[in-house]
């Protein structure tokens, strides 16, 4: 994302003077309706919990203490590091990561395919990708569950064509969760990649092949760098929402183990009713993702000079 005129990935200062005005709506909208609520939650995470929901206005670190330190069932044992929540976070990151990889593996070829269609059928393909998402996520997930059941259509089909001898146990497994997440967020991967690939000048790659570059080299040297922003955007849009998702883990994974999403939800909508802890858990999630994004964009900056060659 470095300042590099002319090359693919053009970041210029054409609109530098208008910058403030162009950004104004974003800053206004987001700072009022996102930053303020986030600040409210930040404050809440340092307040004392009111029994069964709500907060009492007394400052405390209790929520963060609960997250990181284990004092035994009755709170009087010697302090140990609490692994419960860390492992919940780790599991969620792992799940979301696999779902992202899965989406990328399938989403990239799909986007490439769409972008190489003739001009007027592209729009149809783009719509075809999003149409399934007009049906509510809950319904899609329930249908998915039905599909994956032990005596469900998928197993029936696989048995019929004799790929397998006995039904696969898919439901209530981590694989089912990843499939669910992948299915929930696929267009978030496909569309950004499509948007950046569509523009891609295919004559350029033809030129590259004319110069006897192998297909693989064309892909890695010429195409990939120029669609990198799209891939990154897609990965962010799949990974980050997957982290906090709870429908797929609940319905497809059996909810035997908490995920970040269900853990936080339990604090507000479940019997735990511990708002400060829910707020603290979200703040930890938030800072984690922010740090991740920052490290990422910093590396990008470093990588850019070589990437431009």
């Amino acid at each position: 994302m470095e300042h590099s005129k002319g090359a693919a990935g053009a970041v210029t200062d054409t609109y530098a003077k208008e910058r403030v005005w162009l950004l104004m709506p974003t800053w206004l909208m987001l700072s009022i309706l996102v930053v303020i609520p986030v600040l409210i939650m930040l404050v809440y995470s340092f307040l004392t919990k009111e029994f069964r929901g709500g907060v009492i206005w007394e400052f405390t670190f209790a929520a963060y203490d609960q997250f990181f330190f284990d004092r035994g069932l009755f709170g009087d044992e010697p302090v140990k590091i609490e692994w419960t929540y860390i492992s919940i976070y780790w599991r969620s990151i792992w799940q979301a990561g696999l779902a992202t990889v899965l989406s990328l593996l399938l989403g990239f070829p799909t986007a490439y395919y769409i972008a190489t269609r003739p001009q007027n059928s592209r729009a149809v393909w783009v719509f075809l990708i999003t149409i399934p998402y007009w049906v509510n996520l809950l319904i899609r997930t329930v249908s998915m569950k039905f599909l994956l059941r032990e005596n469900g259509p998928l197993n029936d089909f696989l048995l019929m064509i004799e790929v397998i001898d006995e039904p696969l146990r898919l439901i209530n497994t981590a694989l089912a969760v990843q499939l669910g997440l992948f299915y929930s967020y696929l267009p978030f991967m496909v569309l950004p990649i499509y948007a950046s690939i569509e523009r891609y000048n295919f004559t350029l790659s033809e030129a590259a092949s004319d110069l006897y570059a192998t297909k693989f080299a064309t892909l890695t040297r010429v195409i990939l760098p120029s669609i990198k922003p799209g891939v990154i955007a897609g990965c962010i849009l799949v990974f980050v929402p997957s982290l906090g998702a709870f429908l797929a883990p609940d319905l497809l994974g059996g909810a035997k183990n908490f995920m970040i999403g269900s853990l936080i939800e339990e604090q507000f909508k479940g019997s735990a009713g511990n708002w400060p802890f829910g707020a603290a858990a979200s703040m930890i999630l938030l800072s984690m993702v922010l740090i991740l994004l920052m490290v990422f964009s910093r590396q990008q900056k470093k990588a850019q000079p070589q990437g431009g060659q």
């Binding site: 996102v34 962010i236 929402p241 906090g244 999403g261 507000f268 829910g278 979200s282």
Partner: peptide, 16 residues
């Protein structure tokens, strides 16, 4: 800032 709404779990955004 722009990706902030993505990172906050929905239930938290809802309550806040």
């Amino acid at each position: 800032l722009l990706s902030l709404p993505l990172m906050v779990p929905e239930i938290v955004t809802a309550v806040a």
